[in-house]
Simulated scan of single mutants.
Amino acid sequence: MTRKKIQIKKIDNISSRQVTFSKRRKGLFKKAQELSTLCDADVALLVFSATNKLFEYASSSIQQVIERRNGCSENHISMDHPSTDQFQVESESSQTLRKKLEDKSRELRQMNGEDLQELTVQELQKLEAQLRRTLSSVSKRKDEMFMQGINALKRKEVELIQENQRLKHVVPDLIIGQRQQSLESVISGSSYFLEDDGSDTSLKLGLTLHN
């Protein structure tokens, strides 16, 4: 037999409502105790009946749990709803950053020769001096890079000269070695032919005497 599902709505019968309240309250407190024991949770329950009677359960102390709850609420409020002072500080900081960005953008345009109409003579002279310093720094860096390239080429030239000198000593030795090897090959070949001619002569003489 299946258990009939109870419709969740207010019980009109007062006596049935009180019985259900008593049973459900005990079950709720039991579940709270199990949750506290099994999960090491700090639990507090406050229940007021329809007759305004208070029932409470706490794993430690109702007062401690309430104070802990209030402390968490204040932290959440401060995080979710920043104070007016905090808004003001953030707004001022945002305005300062925006102004700096606008100033830097305007300076960059002026250095590119734009937006010069509103500048005074003194401001134009200041901009001119700044551009000269910038140009001087660029030219200096360019000259440094040129010198670095020239020095690298000079070092490469010295290395090539040293390698050329080394090859001048190595190549003659190789040529002499090849000549000696060729001469030895010629001498050994000549000796081989001389030995073959002597053996042929002795064979011919033997045949002549036999006749």
Results as ranks from 00 to 15, higher is better:
M1V: 15
Q7Y: 01
N13H: 04
K23V: 14
R24G: 04
K30W: 02
L35Q: 06
V43A: 03
V43K: 03
A44W: 03
L46Q: 00
A50E: 12
N52Y: 08
N52A: 13
L54S: 04
I62M: 08
Q63T: 14
Q63V: 15
V65Y: 07
V65K: 13
I66V: 08
R69D: 03
C72V: 11
C72E: 11
S73V: 15
S73F: 09
N75P: 03
H81E: 07
S83W: 01
T84L: 13
V89Y: 04
S91K: 13
S93V: 04
S94A: 15
T96N: 12
K104Q: 00
R109K: 14
G113P: 03
L119F: 02
E123W: 04
E123H: 00
L124M: 10
L124E: 01
Q125Y: 06
L127V: 06
E128A: 13
L135Y: 05
S137Q: 13
K140C: 10
R141D: 00
M145L: 14
M147K: 14
I150W: 03
A152E: 07
L153S: 07
I161R: 05
Q162F: 06
E163S: 06
L167T: 10
K168E: 07
Q178F: 08
E184Q: 09
S185M: 14
S188P: 03
S191G: 04
D196F: 12
G198R: 10
T201Q: 11
G206N: 14
T208Y: 09
L209C: 11
N211V: 14
